[in-house]
């Protein structure tokens, strides 16, 4: 989110004056979360504002506020309860009948089995599940899936991209090494890196659940789990190149040719060689949506005024006059 210095001062004062629209308030939150510099800049401005105003925002802790809210809900429920005793008795009878039926059903429901097991080995693996959800496994990743009448469960080892079909009354849950992902009808990518595991959501929303924490991750957000701290953290910026192996969508923003080639090589499984050292630092901004590698190379060659040639297993990029 790009704001000039003047614009951000105006946005902050508007927010602190209580004049910001919901959209502006969200824009400011997003801007703050983009970097530590931004959040410090904001904190600094707020401190000054508080000095002038003579009062300061000091919210109670989130957990304390949550307990208070949960208490209010319980209180309201009790009030309704005393007012509707007769209805409640009737409901209890129905509940007992339903519980009996449910108990019967549970006793007669076969235990879940993971009926589908996928192993990507040394290649990317794309598969469509019986519910029409799509899974693309990264290299060296494994996936198990099973479903019954009420749920769909999966176990993921490694990283994968998912496009899950929402089905009423049949939630989709994925267990990974560090957390459980409860899917709320969505497209997302689970990635495993050296230091952490993350889920990047491009559409819809997922809940990340660990034994100690939970996090809602919505579209264009990324939730990360850091094993060292055991915390889930939300980021409001995503990198679509992370999941390019599944989507073949790339976004390069003033990116070095060397880095572009490395990304393309990993996704398309072709060796890429930059023959001339000077070309490696050339930069390019481009967006590719499901193009073939050949087409992408033509665009790169035209944009950066370079040549490329293909051999059996590699693509070689060189200066125009060196053939």
């Amino acid at each position: 989110m790009d704001f000039s210095e003047e614009e951000i001062y105006e946005l902050i004062t508007k927010f602190l004056s209580g004049e910001a629209t919901p959209d502006e308030a969200m824009q400011l939150e997003e801007w703050k979360e983009e970097s530590i510099d931004h959040s410090e800049f904001y904190a600094h401005a707020v401190r000054l504002w508080e000095q002038v105003s003579g009062d300061a925002s000091c919210p109670e802790s989130t957990n304390k506020a949550w307990e208070k809210l949960a208490g209010k809900k319980t209180g309201n429920n009790k009030k309704k309860f005393t007012l509707k005793v007769i209805l409640k008795v009737a409901a209890a009878v129905i509940l007992m009948v339903s519980a009996g039926a449910l108990l019967f059903k549970i006793n007669h429901t076969p235990q879940r089995e993971y009926s589908i097991m996928l192993d990507a080995g040394n290649n990317f693996l794309r598969d469509t599940l019986p519910d029409n959800s799509i899974v693309v496994l990264d290299k060296q990743s494994g996936f198990q899936y099973g479903a019954d009448d009420n749920s769909r469960k999966a176990i993921l080892k490694g990283q994968a991209w998912f496009c899950i079909q929402g089905i009423d009354g049949k939630p989709f849950e994925i267990e990974t090494r560090y957390f459980k992902i409860k899917v709320l009808g969505t497209t997302f990518h689970v990635s495993v890196e050296k230091e952490f595991q993350s889920v990047t959501v491009t559409n819809g929303a997922v809940l990340l659940i660990t034994p100690h924490d939970t996090l809602l991750v919505s579209a264009n957000q990324k939730g990360c789990y850091l094993p060292s701290s055991g915390r889930l953290t939300l980021y409001r910026k995503i990198d679509i190149n992370e999941m390019a192996y599944a989507t073949h969508q790339f976004y390069f923003d003033d990116t070095r040719l060397e880095d572009i080639c490395a990304k393309l090589a990993s996704v398309y499984g072709r060796k890429m060689v930059i023959a001339d050292e000077s070309l490696k630092s050339m930069r390019m901004t481009a967006e590719f949506q499901n193009e073939s590698l050949q087409d992408i190379m033509v665009i790169i060659a035209q944009t950066l005024h370079v040549h490329f040639k293909q051999t059996n297993d590699s693509i070689i990029i060189h200066e125009k006059n060196s053939d």
């Binding site: 209580g18 919901p22 925002s57 919210p59 989130t62 409860k182 809940l207 939970t214």
Partner: peptide, 25 residues
């Protein structure tokens, strides 16, 4: 569960917004 998640994710930011308008914690 979802309400709890949303509350815990957005409480602080929403409080900041509400505070800016109401000037009372």
């Amino acid at each position: 569960r979802l309400v709890e998640m949303c509350f815990k994710s957005y409480y602080q930011a929403l409080h900041r917004y509400a505070y800016a308008m109401l000037k009372n914690n």
